[in-house]
Design a protein around this nucleic acid. Structure first.
Length: 578
RNA sequence: GCCCCAGUGGCCUAGGGGUUAAGGCGCGUCCUUGGUAAGGACGAGAUCGCGAGUUCAAAUCUCGCCUGGGGCUCCA
């Protein structure tokens, strides 16, 4: 954020605090910083704020701004500060934490004084009276800690010009329109039922079609990249989770155990221990490496109810998981293989921009410093050999090993965490996994965990928002809809539909009672890529009049010609319609 | 989990202590057979999220629960 904007936003926060104090003289002030797109301020208030309150506060703010008040900075002593803010417990807490030797500054404008480091504008007349808007009030813990009192936070958007504010508000509206929860319902892609429980997803037939297309592609890509596909059960004895360490490190996210024949079983939060058991079924030789085992594994994790969000954060989801067992000297090359496959899959799904992070050793970790260094080096070398730009995320690795995370950018430039590639020194140790090396002795393999799409649920959600529900043809639940102009053509349409289905095209006939215009409208709203209008002329000449969801009209086309075109688009997984 | 907001036929919305809860979409039947984004008529469909309480009377007020939404990450 540039300096000017920062000053404006921060000053607006002060002006807002003044307006709130005018309405609630006993309000206790938290903090009020400038943030991306605007500002906020936290208050402890005698009652919850209503949307009407926000309007009132905003009006008062404009009045204050029009008063042309100077912002005046003053440095005061610690004692003066403690006296001045004696009625403001949160401010006192902050003052007490300031280093002894540092001067304490306050900013005053109009009747309002705040403990503040600055910077601010010189005078309220510099504030964009039409460039800001209060958006909403919500709860926020003091200092983000749920053990502290909960304050009311008022968020405002603020920009230098009304045009920029409008662009921002338009963007918020666009995000709302693309929301996968809204589109998921409208397009009947998925459903969450109260009768089932929160965070548990029902994939409806149309969402199922997308998933099958995605999974088919995923399997194919994995076979070609040298993976084997495995399957594992949903529950396992609790001891497995004790050995894996999940019960210790991950208990809060696991569902409670169930008892079967006097044995406790846990529903799986991860697939790893199952793949480890597959590894351990017999002695392994270095000649088998790398072992690449992939599974679309459905896992269940208890997430706090407040963090659940549509398809993006759920309690039951399917990871496109894989575990790869390698010798230390194979690590670098294998990482390259994974990233290659990953970028290929993301590109095919329409994502060409990403942010890559390399996370290094955290404070608490297992394994030797030497192995950490070697693994981190292998990850870094792979990224560099591939010429990928990345950032280091120091100390953000998992306790068991370093990792590469990839966030994809969607059509609105928002980023989503999907891919993760993690090196693991821990599980091979805990499960005492070994292989016989060239020297005839037992060695410890390195285990790589990786998920490319992350979870199918989240990836689906991201896809919905990225494409605004208008999926590329290969992913479209219905790829073409046949629209007979009169009932005379219904029979011909069903004959064509059958022919297209046999060729592998997902097609439907709209034989309902609506007129053609209405059927086209419906197909448009459903974002069906091809609308095939069939009237008497087409039926007689074995043609279809091809209309695209982009409103482009390709005119009559021979049935075989259309079929050829669509199959080409599907097979190449093209983003185009023609 | 915590704070605030919300829950009305399948969907979107109106109503807001007092007869049969209103409209649009969708659905059904009938008329219409229409050439590239909404033809017309009629009809069915709701114990107003669930449970309890207050009241002569509750969709409406109160409490609890369930579900959903925003926030709890931006450090004077």
């Amino acid at each position: 954020m540039d300096e000017k904007l920062l000053r404006m936003r921060h000053s607006l926060a002060h002006v807002m605090a003044q307006a709130v104090l005018e309405m609630f003289p006993d309000a206790k002030l938290g903090i009020g910083p400038a943030i991306e797109d605007g500002f906020y301020y936290d208050f402890l208030l005698p009652r919850p704020l209503t949307p009407e309150d926000l309007k009132t506060i905003q009006k008062r703010m404009k009045k204050i701004i029009k008063g042309n008040h100077d912002f005046v900075k003053k440095e005061i002593t610690r004692e003066e500060a403690l006296e001045m803010f004696k009625d403001q417990p949160f401010k006192l807490e902050l003052i007490r934490e300031l280093p002894e030797d540092e001067p304490i500054s306050i900013y005053t404008h109009s009747t309002f004084v705040d403990l503040c480091r600055g910077p601010h504008v010189a005078n309220t007349k510099e504030l964009p009276i039409k460039g800001f808007k209060l958006l909403e009030a919500s709860g926020a813990y003091w200092r983000g800690d749920e053990r502290n009192p909960q304050l009311q936070r008022i968020y405002g958007a603020a920009f230098e010009t009304p045009e920029e504010l409008k662009a921002y508000l338009d963007r918020l509206e666009e995000i709302k329109q693309r929301d996968h929860r809204k589109l998921g319902k409208e397009l009947e892609l998925y459903h969450m039922s109260d009768a089932i429980g929160s965070g548990l997803v029902l994939w409806l037939p149309k969402g199922g079609a997308v998933r099958v297309a995605l999974e088919d592609y995923w399997r194919d890509a994995h076979f070609k990249a040298g993976y084997d596909i495995v399957f594992s059960p949903h529950i396992a004895k609790i001891d497995l989770w004790k050995t894996s360490g999940h019960l210790d490190f991950y208990r809060e996210n696991m569902y409670s155990p169930m008892e079967v024949d006097e044995q406790e079983y846990e529903i799986k939060p991860m697939n790893c221990p199952f793949h480890v058991q597959m590894y351990k079924m017999r002695k392994r030789s270095y000649r088998e490496f790398p072992l690449r085992w992939a599974e679309l594994g459905t896992v269940y994790r208890y997430e706090r109810s407040g963090v659940l969000h549509g398809l993006m954060r759920v309690r039951g989801f399917t990871q496109d998981d894989a575990h790869i067992f390698v010798r230390p000297d194979q690590l670098n090359e294998e990482i390259i293989n994974i990233l290659d496959l990953n970028l290929d899959i993301l590109r095919t799904c329409g994502f060409s921009e990403y942010d890559i992070y390399l996370s290094t050793k955290p404070e608490k970790y297992v394994g030797t410093d030497e192995s950490w260094e070697r693994a981190t080096e292998a990850l870094r070398a792979a990224l560099e050999q591939m010429g990928l730009k990345y950032e280091i995320d120091p100390g953000e690795g998992v306790f068991y090993g370093p990792k590469i995370d990839i966030k994809i950018r969607d059509a609105l430039g928002r980023s989503w965490q999907c891919t993760t590639v993690q090196v693991d020194f821990n599980l091979p140790e805990r499960f005492d996994m070994t292989y016989i090396a060239e020297d005839g002795k037992e060695h410890r393999p390195i285990m790589i965990h990786r998920a490319l799409m992350g979870s199918l649920e989240r990836f689906f959600g991201v896809l919905i928002e990225h494409y605004k529900g208008a999926f590329p043809v290969w992913l479209s639940p219905i790829q073409a809809r046949l629209i007979p102009i009169t009932d005379e053509q219904i029979e011909f349409c069903f004959k064509l539909a059958n022919e297209f289905k046999q060729a592998g095209i997902r097609v439907e006939v709209d034989d309902g009672p609506d007129r053609m215009q209405k059927k086209i409208r419906n197909a448009q709203l459903e974002k069906i890529p091809y609308q095939l209008v069939v009237g008497e002329r087409e039926a007689q000449s074995n043609q279809v009049a091809v209309r695209l969801r982009t409103n482009e009209n390709l005119g009559p086309m021979a049935v075989d010609e259309f079929k050829k075109m669509v199959l080409r688009i599907i097979e190449t997984r093209s983003q185009d319609l023609q």
